[in-house]
Write a protein that binds this DNA or RNA. Structure first.
Length: 622
DNA sequence: CTACGCGGGA
């Protein structure tokens, strides 16, 4: 009992207050290094392998002390078996930090292995990764040299902490101790840099200087690129592998597929599936899930279902991937049915599954169902809603035009709303004409997140809607002063194994003339069919004719013109956008699908729009 | 005088 109480006190002292380091250095008698008999170690090992709780651990610890059998394995095995239990890690770690004050722990061996174990254990925790760094420093202050195993553990922690400077320091330290030439250390280094804000390019430098690369190195780099949204670079790396004749493994494929999903690169994704088969890369459950996700995010639910049905084993991720795909298409009813099917298969539900489900309800306008599932989530499944779930609900009400409900919901939610939720609210208020509230929230958002570009865009659009042009230009000036740039609209098309990007208002290098002629022609054809430009979408203080020109420069229209020019007649056109589709482009694309008899699939920031015969699958609800 | 290490999916 006492041991437990003491541990808690020690721990709080250890980690919540600074002076622990001083405590250490003033008392520092050099740690005693005593090698024990192997038998003793074996004994404690077997004892500890049965240990599964903190109480048991303290009992065994006491027993070991009494028999004088305490050596490294105590910490070692305890950590490797129940490293997720923070209390146990803290307990064992406190034995290490305090043992030299206590005569009974004199047998404890201080070596790199011991510290590695602690560092690994803390690196694997969710909340206490910084303690891994603490113990690394402690190790150094004990003059115990790290070994090559130390860095992968430590870098895992710094990857999770996402602190660039920390990663840099560790990098320097690894250099100093001469472990920077170890392949594992290098791979983890690339990964750690990739995880830090603004670290991908440094990671690439490390990567480029590596004399030997393994599939792990490639996966780390490709995964790093796709995680920060630089999927084009990720694909580029994959192409390099192909050119160099380097065969990736299943994890590499997952990284590549994730980039394909992000880009909506269906053809490349298909090719990767083919490649996996050809190269006999094991199609593990994770690989199949990545394939399902890729097909779903590329808008091909049928292919996603094909892979899904062919899987030998499925898990919650497989099911959720398909469901999210359906949600993105606005196929809410199917998604709900699919969810119920998953339930009947006895799959244990989790919080992500509910995010998918609630999104499905939201995109299909199923307010009642959404509310129902939201309340059943806690009541029936004991899943505590996270901020994302609350966000889904606010979105659900907002999309359905129930501004009052949305506001009430935000008012009553038990956790503090985040900026995502506030932005959703701004949008619903803006559409419903409550501009004063929008302005208010928007100003507060700018105060909270002064570097977030979309907050300024929102406020500026609100002023445009209020016809307050001078206030609007103030916002623009403020942005300029702070060096914040509006993210331009961008549309992508995959054609003949190439990915083409169109940026709003962009002067195309090739085919510039041709594309703009095509845009004009499209305009004429559309008008003949009854299209009227939605000039109110243009939030600039210019005259009507210029507004029409501005609309024609939207990246989506450029991309469609390009596709009409370069693909075979009747072939479906697939476009991926970085922003949400604007009202005018939505209406125009409907006309184009009819006039040119093409199916046009547009994936915007949030969902799919399938344009066919002059109408859209979203039924103008988006 | 051995035990410890890297990348991935909704």
């Amino acid at each position: 009992m006492l041991a437990q109480t003491l541990t808690r006190r020690i721990c709080s002292y250890l980690f919540k207050r600074k002076p622990i380091f001083q405590t250490f250095s003033t008392h520092s008698s050099p740690p005693q290094i005593i090698t024990n008999k192997r038998a003793a170690e074996q004994n404690s090992l077997s004892l500890l392998s049965t240990c599964n709780s903190l109480t048991k651990l303290t009992q065994i610890h006491a027993h070991l002390l009494k028999s004088g059998l305490l050596t490294n394995p105590l910490v070692l095995t305890k950590f490797s078996s129940t490293s997720s239990d923070l209390n146990s890690i803290d307990y064992a770690a406190s034995i290490v930090t305090w043992s030299h004050h206590d005569h009974s722990h004199a047998h404890l061996i201080y070596d790199a292995f011991l510290f590695n174990t602690i560092i690994r254990a803390y690196a694997q925790t969710d909340q206490s990764k910084h303690r891994a760094v603490f113990f690394y420093n402690l190790m150094l202050s004990h003059s115990i040299s790290p070994n090559k195993f130390t860095y992968p553990f430590l870098l895992k922690a710094s990857a999770g902490l996402e602190e660039l400077n920390l990663t840099r320091q560790i990098h320097g330290s690894a250099l100093k101790f001469g472990f920077d030439e170890d392949l594992y250390v290098q791979n983890t280094m690339v990964h750690a840099y990739c995880c830090c804000v603004g670290g991908v390019d440094i990671a690439r430098k490390v990567f480029d200087e590596m004399p030997k690369l393994s599939p792990v190195s490639w996966s780390a780099m490709i995964g790093g690129y796709s995680r920060v949204g630089r999927s084009v670079d990720a694909i580029d790396m994959f192409r390099r592998m192909q050119v160099g004749g380097i065969k990736g493994d299943e994890v590499t494929m997952i990284s590549v597929l994730s980039a394909c999903a992000d880009l909506g690169a269906l053809e490349l994704g298909r090719w990767v599936e083919f490649y996996i088969e050809k190269e006999r890369i094991p199609n593990t459950i994770e690989v199949c899930n990545a394939l399902v996700d890729m097909f779903a995010k590329c808008g091909d639910i049928e292919e996603a279902m094909r892979v899904f049905r062919n899987m030998k084993d499925r898990n919650i991720v497989s099911w959720t991937s398909v469901m999210v795909g359906m949600a993105m298409q606005g196929r809410g009813k199917e998604a709900v049915t699919f969810f119920e099917e998953m339930k009947s298969h006895g799959v244990a539900l989790d919080d992500v599954a509910f995010i998918g489900l609630l999104t499905a309800c939201s995109h299909a306008g199923m307010v009642k169902e959404g509310c129902c599932y939201f309340s059943s989530m806690t009541r029936e499944y004991g899943i505590v809603p996270k901020i994302e779930h609350y966000g889904c609900m606010v979105d659900l009400f907002s999309r359905a035009g129930q501004a009052k409900k949305a506001l009430e919901f935000v008012q009553e939610m038990p956790i503090e709303p985040n900026s995502v939720i506030w932005r959703t609210l701004i949008n619903v208020c803006r559409v419903q004409g409550d501009l004063a509230i929008s302005e208010c929230i928007s100003r507060r958002l700018i105060g909270d997140e002064p570097m977030h570009e979309s907050n300024y865009v929102l406020l500026s659009n609100i002023y445009a809607k209020m016809f307050r042009w001078e206030k609007k230009s103030n916002v623009r000036n403020l942005m300029e002063k702070k060096g914040i740039r509006k993210v331009p609209g961008c549309s992508m098309i995959e054609l003949n194994d190439q990915i083409y990007e169109f940026v709003s208002g962009d002067k195309m290098k090739d085919q510039y003339e041709e594309i703009h002629k095509m845009v004009d022609e499209m305009g004429r054809e559309m008008r003949r069919a009854g299209y009227v430009p939605t000039t109110s979408e243009v939030l600039l203080d210019i005259d009507e004719e210029d507004k029409e020109d501005a609309l024609n420069l939207h990246s989506e229209k450029l991309a469609i013109a390009f596709a009409l020019l370069n693909s075979r007649p009747g072939a479906p056109i697939r476009i991926v956008k970085n922003l949400r589709v604007c009202g005018d482009c939505h209406s125009a694309t409907k006309f184009i699908s009819k006039v040119y008899n093409r199916e046009i699939l547009v994936r915007d920031r949030k969902r799919f729009h399938r344009f066919r015969y002059g109408s859209c699958s979203c039924n103008d609800y988006w």
